[in-house]
Design a binder for these strands. Structure first.
Lengths: 222, 222
DNA sequence: GTCTATAATTAGATAGAC
DNA sequence: GTCTATCTAATTATAGAC
């Protein structure tokens, strides 16, 4: 990564700050363009020329602002995962069941708003690579553990569908994200627009009903 | 692979049949190799050289046996979809519920045995292309319609989870296939082997329980 | 920081000897 | 049918003028 080492004064006069702002902007434009190209064609299938063109920049600017295509890819994922964190942030004071419901709705909302994250993860997950190891070990695993612990608690309380924690992650993410990751297919096959708010809500409702079925004890208590 | 030098007689002596057999064999080896490369890297990311290497052939043989990379890709899908049909063939005399249960178990079994089909479909579904149009219109749509009709029947009978037919396809396929499509990720993240028969069975059992929950009427009748 | 030019490699496809 | 050589185009990355 190219750090903007100030050529200006000791540490940042007005001009240096203005230039830093411009640098941050072009970097973000490149990340936004790369996110789409990586999501559409996979890492190998995406070309830095197409990314630069989409960003309104020249191809060598990628190697200037990022050390390599791979570093650009990592920047893409860090940005998208930050947005995922915002969409699934846990609110304090909620019951385990409410927490899980919020997580499910957050995952669906994120998949609809930013299908690129799931597209990229799905592309990468199909074959072993150094990128996949980085992604799983440093990003996915830390985010997954709290959800699996929560699931075990719900299962013990009889409030969760009969799915083992080992299977939960892929069953839930698959059920929640494929419609959006493969939205172009859904448009052709079903003639629907997966990002339509009414569909997003129906989708989330269905998943909550399936993964968090009504608790028999609650029904008895009513 | 060296074939008998025979140019053989006018139309189909023993030697011609032997050559046809050899041709069919190399074609299938190329299809099997292509299936893995397309599944791992997507259409754009897969190279014909890597495919030929995996098949123990030379790169120009692909253009000799298939008109183009795209025709090879279509041959891959026709083979895999034929196997899917075999795995999900409907048995006569079963109730709608039993038929749906068999379909769910067949989809899971196919995903575990041939993860390449779902990997390729997932790669293609992320962006519009002529290949996607061909895939959806000529292959996916005809196979999907009977399943959706069956689902509506089950929903009307109160035997199906509360998912609209429009959402069913992607929710079910996502829940059933992501674990296998992204098996390399699951191995790293969870330390499990998704093709393990015990996991395949537990996975299918969980999906059947979630998508075909016990019918309240049946419970009342017991 | 940008942009032109280009190096070094690889892509899909073809020609022609065998 | 196979296989070597090769064509054209596209790839990531770099050099250097501005």
């Amino acid at each position: 990564m190219q750090v903007s080492t100030a050529t200006a004064g000791p540490s940042g006069g007005p001009r240096a700050r203005s230039r830093d702002r411009a640098t941050a902007e072009i970097r973000d434009r490149l990340v936004e363009a790369a996110l789409v190209e990586f999501a559409n064609h996979g890492f190998d299938g995406a070309s830095t020329r197409a990314i630069a063109r989409r960003a309104g920049a020249h191809q060598p600017q990628i190697n200037y602002h990022f050390a390599s295509k791979e570093e650009l890819w990592k920047a893409v994922l860090l940005k998208l995962l930050g947005e995922l964190d915002a969409a699934t942030a846990i609110a304090p004071g909620l019951s385990p069941r409410e927490t899980m419901e919020r997580a499910i709705r957050g995952v669906v909302a994120m998949g609809a708003a930013r299908p690129e994250l799931n597209r990229i993860m799905i592309h990468e997950g199909t074959h072993p690579s150094d990128r996949l190891v980085w992604l799983v070990e440093t990003q996915v695993a830390p985010r997954t553990r709290p959800m699996l612990a929560l699931w075990e608690k719900l299962r013990a309380a009889g409030e969760a569908a009969p799915i083992s924690p080992e299977l939960l992650y892929h069953v839930l993410i698959g059920a929640a994200s494929l419609l959006h990751a493969n939205a172009p297919e859904a448009r052709l096959l079903l003639g629907i627009e997966p990002s339509d708010p009414a569909i997003v809500e129906a989708h989330a409702d269905a998943l909550v009903a399936m993964f968090l079925p009504p608790n028999p004890k609650d029904r008895a208590a009513r």
